[in-house]
Structure formats: C-alpha cells, structure tokens
C-alpha cells in the first residue's frame, strides 16, 4: 500500500500523482520506472518516475488515462492508497557530459524525459527541449522545464502554441539553421520515436529512446516486453527501458503493442460505463 499524497490534473486526461515511497525515492535514478496496481484486482501498470524527493520520501508519476487500468487509477483521490507499488525498475539513464543535448518529447513522453533532461543539465550539458502535443491545453510541464532548460520549443498540430506541426518539423528547422547536437533523447508514442529518431540519427546525432512495451512483472520474468536490438532479444524491463535507437527493430515492437487492442477497447468501454453510472 502506498498513499497518494497529492494528485493534480495537468491536462484533460493527464494527471500527476505524488506517492509516498521512501525506499524508491531514495534508490531511484533518472530513467527508471515503477509498476503499480490501483486496486487489489487491478492490472500491473508500468509508469516512469517523473520526479522524486528522497528527503521527503515521495515519487511522482504522470498518467495519461488510456485503458481500464489508468481509468481506475484516475479515480483514486488524494489520501487514498494504491494497492501495490514496486520499483525502481529498469536501468538508469547513462548520464554524462555530452555537450549539447536535445530532448524531444511527444505528448505525455515529457514525463519520462523530464528527469533525464534535468540530469543531463546537472551534468553540465546544454539542454534544448522540443515539446509536442495536439493542442496547447495538452502541453504539460512547460513552465517547470522553462525554469532550467536552456531552450524550450513547442509544436502543436493545430498551431495553438509554438510552431504548427510536429516535433519533427521543429527539429528540422533547427537542423536547417545549422544547429548541431551531441546527444538526442526522444520519448513519446512508438511511431513518433521511430520517425523522430530516424531524423536525429540522419543528422548523425547518437539517439536514445525509452520504450513502453507491454509488460507484467517488470523483473525479467515474463519476457512480454522483449524487443529486438542489434539482432538480439532484449527485455525492456531489465535491459532497458532505454535503448540506442539505431539498433531497434521497430516493426515487430510496434506490432506487439497492438496485441490486446480488442480487449483494451472492451475493458475501456466497460470501465467508462462504470464511470458514467458512478
């Protein structure tokens, strides 16, 4: 059991949750994640640790309501507890002094990117962040990032904030201006990571992505999160979740994300009915 210390809405369907977790807060590093279950019969939901405070003993996760599990989680309130919380899981990000770093996030991908970019900044790198979302109200963490990043650029599909277009358009603008970077971190939906990392790699920038496959235990047991990297089977939970984008075989990875789409649609419908009737 882990208590929800604070919960706030960041955007429609996106909320931030602060959980009491002293041990995880003390041992976690940027890039790592937790698995939680909202209720004792709930599914195991992997979530990146977006922020943590070891002195106060809390961690924060940012949740986009997508399936039945995250819907249930979203119904818990401050003061409630989640049934289970385990972590930190996965390999920490390799943080070193690269020089100029660019972080590119699509949607809620900024949640995992946030602690990584902050650690890169702390290690003496200059950090440019590109944030993309469908519209202005879906851009999260903007003011927090503007507090420490060297540069924050926005892209929205409807043009309500920043450049009208995609994060890739912003990146290409930079490339055309002759801007160069020594390291790129790209996090967002799989299709976005695949497309954007292709561009950054095309510019000769070593690029890391953080994968979000289906997983159950998060400790290497089930192998559901397997992904082919450099022709070898890797488990995102123990070998990742970050991998150099260059070696990833995206096609099967993206396909496997769709394994349960029928089930997910059904449970989402069932869950939202319960929500309406509640």
């Amino acid at each position: 059991m882990s208590q929800i210390l604070r919960k706030e809405k960041l955007a429609p369907d996106i909320f931030r949750m602060r959980l009491s977790a002293p041990l995880i807060a003390a041992s976690r590093h940027p890039g790592q994640f937790v698995i939680l279950r909202a209720t004792p019969d709930g599914e195991r939901i992997p979530l990146t640790i977006a922020d943590a405070c070891s002195e106060a003993g809390w961690i924060e996760v940012i949740v986009q309501v997508a399936g039945a599990g995250t819907m249930r989680l979203s119904r818990l309130r401050q003061g409630d507890s989640v049934a289970d919380l385990v972590g930190p899981l996965g390999q920490p990000t390799r943080i070193k002094r690269y020089g100029r770093c660019i972080g590119i996030a699509g949607g809620v991908g900024i949640a995992p990117l946030y602690p990584i970019a902050q650690a890169l900044k702390a290690a003496g790198n200059s950090v440019t962040i590109i944030l993309g979302a469908r519209s202005r109200d879906k851009i999260i963490l903007r003011s927090e990032i503007e507090g420490w990043a060297d540069e924050v650029l926005l892209a929205t599909e409807d043009g309500s904030a920043g450049r009208k277009g995609l994060v890739s358009d912003v990146f290409l603008d930079l490339a055309r201006q002759g801007r160069t970077f020594e390291r790129a971190v790209v996090i967002g939906p799989a299709a976005m990571m695949r497309a954007v990392s292709k561009l950054t790699l095309g510019q000769g920038i070593p690029t890391v992505v953080s994968l979000n496959p289906i997983m159950i235990d998060g400790t290497g047991l089930c192998g559901g999160c397997r992904v082919e990297v450099d022709g070898k089977i890797k488990f995102a939970c123990v070998d990742g979740p970050e991998f150099e984008a260059e070696g990833i075989d995206w096609e099967p990875f993206m396909r496997r994300l769709r394994s349960y789409q029928d089930f997910e649609r059904q449970t989402r419908e069932r869950e939202s009915c319960r929500l309406m009737n509640a």
């Binding site: 047991l221 089930c222 559901g224 082919e228 396909r255 496997r256 394994s259």
Partner: peptide, 13 residues
Amino acid sequence: SAIGVYSANEYLT
C-alpha cells in the same frame, strides 16, 4: 515476435 507468441512464464503468469 508475432502476436500470440508467449514465453511459458508469461502465459502462465
């Protein structure tokens, strides 16, 4: 990596 290939661990878990 086709959909429907499980490790026994995952299937049983």
